[in-house]
Nucleic acid binder design. Structure first.
Lengths: 211, 211
DNA sequence: ACCTGAACACCGTTCAAGT
DNA sequence: ACCTGAACACCGTTCAAGT
């Protein structure tokens, strides 16, 4: 009887999982963290205030994340997943062509500007892909979209033969640098907007790949 | 008499300034901060442990820096100053030529790899140039070396006519991205070393500038 | 002028306890 | 299974006091 009642109680809680206090508390923590980071910076993120905002105890998070850095790693992993999908969408929707490749570059910078909180956590050096397997997988997946696109361009003769990994690294470095300049507000000071700069960068990339 | 004795006491302390407790305490704080950051990361930096390490109270720092972020801003400003000097040295020592420009790129990445603590503070998004005038000036100074070099290459016909600021932004973005890949250890995972990648990036840059 | 120690208002994390 | 409140060991910063 005791075992049965425990079982029933447990099942009730499990059944309530997607309707518990805040529905999906894990997701609520993730979203609130992103909200705080984008508005006040990573350093302003405290578990206590997030918990209070969500109306749960300040230790409730530990049911869903090992610690604070695991929460940040989850934000980063989610960012890489979104980035991968948006890059893939730009590449495919524009016909996997040289122009589509340029659109990927624009999509990359657009992602960073639209999601600075995710982007800063992804590349701010706070979380290391080393530690979180999920994060490492998502990061590698986003990079692979770029590598695959380069290989496709080489196959149809748009890009010259060269180690595609090396192309990918330099191109990623370039758009990443443009994205950083954009979200750090360094372009505003120089009266340049991010999309203009990434278009210019795309032109430079096109030249250096086709020669 | 009171005024005179106060004056004398003050002068004694001022005279001792460069021989006080640790000679230059401001410099000692700066160096110890860099040491801690490079060994354990920015998040591991605590004023209390730095003070303890230097044998002073944990509030002694406030005589030399407004707060912790001012200390980090000073680290970043020092980093930009070192970077500017090393870029300028590479450019001038190699004869202000196209090759010298490539050597600047290599010097940039070498700086980041040799001084990852400074580099992370400079670009990690913790300090904003917006707030610290000294930091803003040093950052702009380092960037100007790149702009000036591009203008020189355009004057002697090595680089094509184009807004030098735009060239500078994309090129900076590229070498910065390579530097980030290098110090985040993402290249090791792909069996590429930083200098090989920056040499490849330099070749891409040379092509795109000369066409 | 420069440094100190105590105090204040925080923080992440642990843990026994509740349902 | 999931959540709680109290407790622990920190942290940056302020401030009256010393020399």
């Amino acid at each position: 009887m005791l075992t049965l009642s425990t079982y029933i109680t447990t099942m009730m809680f499990v059944a309530k999982k997607h309707g518990y206090h805040h529905g999906d508390l894990r997701r609520a923590f993730l979203e609130e963290a992103v909200r705080v980071i984008s508005r006040k910076g990573v350093d302003a993120l405290t578990l206590r205030s997030v918990g209070e905002r969500l109306g749960v105890s300040r230790t409730a998070m530990y049911r869903h994340f090992a610690d604070k850095s695991a929460l940040l790693a989850a934000v980063a992993a989610e960012g890489f997943r979104m980035l991968r999908l948006q890059l893939l969408d730009a590449w495919e929707r524009h016909g996997r062509s040289g122009d589509a490749f340029a659109e990927m570059g624009r999509a990359y910078v657009r992602f960073a500007v639209a999601n600075p909180a995710h982007y800063r956590v992804m590349f701010g050096g706070r979380v290391e892909a080393h530690g979180d397997p999920d994060l490492a997988r998502e990061g590698a997946g986003a990079f692979q979209v770029l590598v695959d696109a380069i290989i496709a361009l080489q196959k149809n003769g748009t890009a010259r033969a060269e180690n595609p990994l090396r192309f990918a690294q330099v191109i990623w470095a370039t758009v990443h640098g443009v994205a950083m300049l954009a979200i750090d507000g360094l372009l505003e000071r120089q009266q340049t907007d991010a999309d203009t700069l990434v278009r210019f960068a795309n032109e430079q990339i096109r030249i250096s790949m086709s020669v």
